[in-house]
Design a protein around this nucleic acid. Sequence first.
DNA 1: TACCTTTGTATCGGCTACCGATATAACGGA
DNA 2: TCCGTTATATCGGTAGCCGATACAAAGGTA
Lengths: 102, 102
Amino acid sequence: MNTSNNVLTEAVYYILLALVEPLHGYGIMQQTARLSNGRLVISAGTLYGAISTLLEKGWIKQVTNTFESRRKEYVITPDGHVVLMAELDRLRELVANGEKIL
Amino acid sequence: MNTSNNVLTEAVYYILLALVEPLHGYGIMQQTARLSNGRLVISAGTLYGAISTLLEKGWIKQVTNTFESRRKEYVITPDGHVVLMAELDRLRELVANGEKIL
DNA sequence: TACCTTTGTATCGGCTACCGATATAACGGA
DNA sequence: TCCGTTATATCGGTAGCCGATACAAAGGTA
């Protein structure tokens, strides 16, 4: 499963976070930009590369959309959720250590 | 100066954090491992590569140590401090968004 | 109708960074 | 004498991000 011992990149973190609810690629880009107040705009190269990696790892899965459309929807898996929670813990550790020292 | 618009890697973040007080390379490794409760052990390749990059960027500088020794001590610069504070803000944003959604 | 912007997915090459392995060597203790 | 720790440094492999590029459908406007 390879859940622990993993540091997520910022892009992957936001992609997983966006996929807590089913969403398609382009929607992930917009959701990420919105959440980060426009700071992080995931490029297409990053996004679709990350999506295929995440599918291989089984952290997200494709949702079979009822209405045929250009869109491909994805959603986070239970494994992906575990990874995401572990990442949040890691980020909390970084913030705590930063606040302790600075 | 290239302070903003920068995402620090975990290794670089801990290196800068450790260099709030003067410290040498090997000491940074130990300090990082201690702060992260043994989770993050920066490898030698990462450490010395990052140190030379940080020197080039002017985010850290070498401290002229009084007593000749094998050790080379470094310390964070004002520029490095600005970068570090910006990174802490970014991490806080990630945690806040994670907690909002999860 | 014709044009433009937005939506939407996808690939490729270049660059950066982490890591493990490897090398070298001084120091201190058993 | 031997060995583990301290200490710095380089190299090759791998992974990920990004900008550029490509293609195309949908919607709005002149």
